[in-house]
Simulated scan of single mutants.
Amino acid sequence: MTDPATEPDRPERPEREFPTIMEQMGGVPGIIASSIPVAVFVVVNIVAGLQPALFASIGAAVLVTVWRLVRKEALQPAVSGLLGVGVAAFIASRTGEARGFYLPGLLLSAGLFLAFVVSLVVRWPLAGVVWHGINGEGMGWRDDPALRRAYMLATGLWAIVFGARVVVQGILYDANEETWLGIARLAMGYPLFGLALLGTIWAVRRAQQRTHLA
Rank of each mutant, 00 (worst) to 15 (best):
E17C: 09
M188P: 07
D144R: 07
P11E: 00
V28T: 10
V43F: 09
H212R: 12
V70I: 14
Q208C: 06
L106Q: 06
P191K: 00
S119E: 05
G194H: 01
A159M: 11
L63K: 04
R71Y: 07
L114M: 14
L75R: 04
I171P: 07
L126A: 02
I201K: 06
A98W: 07
P191G: 08
A92T: 10
W202K: 07
R205Q: 12
A184Q: 06
V70N: 09
E178Q: 08
F41L: 07
R149C: 09
L82C: 11
Q76H: 05
L69Q: 10
E15V: 12
L126R: 01
P19M: 04
M188K: 07
R149E: 13
I183Y: 09
G59C: 12
V129K: 03
P29H: 00
Y151V: 06
F113N: 08
R165T: 09
T211F: 03
N176Q: 11
L112T: 11
W67F: 11
Q209E: 12
I183C: 13
P29V: 05
A187E: 09
T2E: 10
V129A: 06
L106P: 06
T155V: 08
Q208G: 02
H132R: 06
G156C: 10
G111Q: 05
G96L: 03
I21Q: 09
V66N: 08
V117M: 03
R206T: 14
A48D: 11
M1N: 10
A175K: 00
P125S: 05
A74F: 12
A53W: 03
L192S: 13
V85C: 14
V161H: 08
G30E: 03
G84Q: 02
F113R: 00
G163C: 08
R16W: 11
R165H: 08
H132L: 07
A127V: 01
A61L: 09
W141R: 01
A187K: 03
A164S: 15
V168E: 01
T179V: 15
S34G: 14
L198C: 12
P52E: 00
P4R: 05
P37F: 00
Q24E: 06
W67N: 09
G182I: 01
G140D: 01
T20R: 10
A175N: 00
L103I: 11
